[in-house]
Design a protein around this nucleic acid. Structure first.
Length: 559
RNA sequence: UGGGACGUCGCCAAGUGGUAAGGCUCUGGGUUUUGAUCUCAGCAUUCGUAGGUUCGAACCCUACCGUCCCAGCCA
């Protein structure tokens, strides 16, 4: 374990202190998403933190759906969230949990609070409630229903439960302090009437508990020791503790807040991501340009690289914005080490090697799947008299910086021969459509005998035998470094060129039955992952291969 | 004169009274059949600002400045 040298983050320190003092014997955490959307990179941090803490300290982490508001929720999201958490590499303790499975207990505890004189049914409308609450600088005033008798409250609350009232007609509030400096403590509402079905409990309930009321109690029921959430819940902590202190809960969880993950050039807000999907700016939640877990997965980001990235950003209470380059580094780092190499020509330019005999020109060459890892084996390359190179790798007249193919100059074909260009053939528009070149004999694995070394190395593919494919190049979705900062309209900084589709790309034959578990490195180009739109199990004639560019190679050319 | 939190290199981030870790980015050198990887080197006399305490302060005290969060019957 390399993390022995790594400094502990503040939550780990707290846990270690709790273990040392005996306050905690078994660490229990939870990841509590509301099933109302897809998970994104921000959730990944919470997942890595909560599951990571449990793992590090030999405890367990629950996956709990905080489904207290049926209006916005759906089972579709429950399934996608389970899938994303698993894909990220984490396992939750026993069954998936639902806040909704605690509704009976929560109801009983609400009755308990009423009997204790600590909760009351309030008939104020939503608007009146807001007026009575006061504002940031002025104290609120007590609801006229605050002093109802226990009996009346009990009766009303039971009738609320039984569906006797309209949505919003009444609410159950907890009696704390309408003048409290913390707005959360001004008699917060803990039950609201919603005559609506719930995706887990059906039509059983007409009232639903609020987040504040359900969350801490859910933690207590599950024996959560350290309830870790993001900073915006910090002002809810006194309320969280109030419930724990005033209810006969089975355990005493504690809440700790950390700052959420922000990455520049990205937008992570369910509402905003949803808008991108709804307005067809992207092709669904799993569009490879989306910062969703499913989008990143489809793009080719590995779970390991996402975990590494999260780990690299740390856990603090400081509001910050992480550089996109830090994410990209983690992706490249993992992919460089683990991706098999292949050659694929994105913008084909035919090169005829005229000194290769026309008859039986096909030659089989062997290339390693990874330059630094022998354990990854080798693959067979097909070399022919006619090959394709990338248009960008040829210039009639080069310059000192251009280390590629130039008329009269030499270049090494990756894993093959050194060639020298003789002539560029153009069409009527003056566009180069073919290059005549020749191989330098004896250069397979050796430098030319005449001592004239090639300037560079370029990739290539047989023009006779190759695999046709489509390649989708992705760029950032937004051109603005902080698309939605300060209330800016993120839709205005959309990058019109975030997707470029290339067809007629030519890949080497090893791509015939491509790997689906990890991106390839198309040498000298970047990392490319097979997209779900591909159709390659059919006959070769009709197969369709689509590759997403996960990320380009680091490029220090021109510097 | 609402309440709360936070301010260490361009970006993350250690450090909690003994004289500024690390990663990313960036810059320059080397290796290289990927302009990749790898590798070597450089990059904060200074810790939001100003005072104070101390032999000694990023760490303690005071004041100020700045940023973020809270007025959903959302989470």
């Amino acid at each position: 374990m390399t993390d022995t040298e790594k400094p502990l983050n503040f939550i780990q320190k707290i846990i270690e202190e709790d273990i040392a003092s005996g306050k905690t014997t078994q660490v229990q955490t939870r990841f509590p998403p509301e099933p109302n959307g897809y998970l994104h990179i921000g959730h990944a941090k919470s997942i890595c933190l909560n599951f990571g803490l449990a793992k590090k300290y030999g405890g367990q982490c629950n996956l709990r759906f905080d489904d207290t508001n049926p209006e916005k929720e759906d089972v579709e999201y429950v399934e996608s969230i389970k899938n994303d958490v698993k894909w990220l590499g984490f396992e939750w303790a026993d069954q998936v949990k639902f806040s909704s499975s605690y509704f009976d207990q929560l109801y009983d505890w609400a009755v308990y609070l009423i009997k204790e004189g600590k909760a009351y049914v309030c008939d104020l409308t939503q608007e009146e409630t807001r007026e009575y609450r006061g504002n940031l600088t002025e104290a609120g005033k007590n609801s006229p229903f605050r002093e109802r008798s226990v009996e009346e409250n009990l009766d009303l609350f039971e009738r609320m439960r039984d569906g006797e009232f309209e949505d919003g007609a009444r609410s159950l509030r907890v009696k704390i302090d309408m003048a409290h400096g913390n707005m959360q403590m001004r008699d917060p509402i803990i039950y609201r009437i919603k005559n609506i079905e719930h995706h887990q409990t059906g039509d059983k309930w007409h009232i639903y508990p609020s987040y504040d009321y359900a969350h801490g109690q859910g933690d207590a029921i599950e024996g959560v020791t350290h309830s870790v959430c993001t900073l915006e819940f910090a002002e809810h902590q006194p309320l969280y503790n109030w419930f724990i202190d005033n209810l006969p809960v089975p355990s005493k969880p504690r809440q700790y807040e950390f700052s959420r993950l922000n990455v520049n050039y990205l937008v992570t807000s369910k509402r905003k991501l949803k808008q991108l999907v709804d307005e067809n700016v992207v092709n669904g939640w799993d569009d490879p340009r989306m910062p969703t877990i499913s989008g990143m997965r489809r793009r080719g980001y590995t779970a390991q690289s996402i975990r590494n990235f999260i780990e690299s950003t740390g856990v603090t209470r400081v509001d910050g914005v992480v550089d996109m380059s830090q994410l990209e580094f983690s992706v490249r780092e993992d992919l460089n080490e683990n991706s098999p190499r292949a050659m694929c020509i994105l913008r084909p330019l035919k090169v005829t090697l005229w000194n290769v005999p026309e008859e039986n020109s096909t030659e089989y060459l062997v290339a390693p799947n990874h330059p630094q890892r022998e354990d990854m084996g080798t693959r067979t390359l097909i070399f022919d008299r006619e090959i394709y190179i990338d248009k960008e790798d040829f210039q009639e007249e080069g310059n000192k910086k251009f280390k590629r193919l130039v008329i009269g100059k030499r270049v090494r074909l990756r894993n093959a021969y050194v060639i020298e260009a003789d002539e560029a053939i153009k069409d009527s528009n003056g566009e180069i459509i073919e290059v005549k070149a020749r191989i330098i004999e004896g250069t397979l694995g050796n430098n030319p005998e005449d001592g004239i070394k090639p300037k560079g190395v370029i990739h290539w593919v047989s023009a006779i035998q190759n695999v046709d494919c489509e390649v989708r190049l992705y760029d950032r979705l937004f051109n603005d470094i902080a698309p939605d900062a300060g209330g800016k309209d993120y839709m205005e900084s959309l990058n019109p060129d975030s997707l470029e589709v290339l067809t007629g790309c030519k890949g080497e034959v090893s791509l015939q039955s491509p790997r689906t578990d990890i991106p390839y490195q198309f040498e000298r180009e970047g990392y490319y992952f097979l997209d779900a739109d591909s159709d390659y199990d059919q006959d070769l004639e009709n197969q369709r291969l689509v590759f997403n560019r996960t990320i380009g190679l680091r490029d220090t050319w021109d510097k």
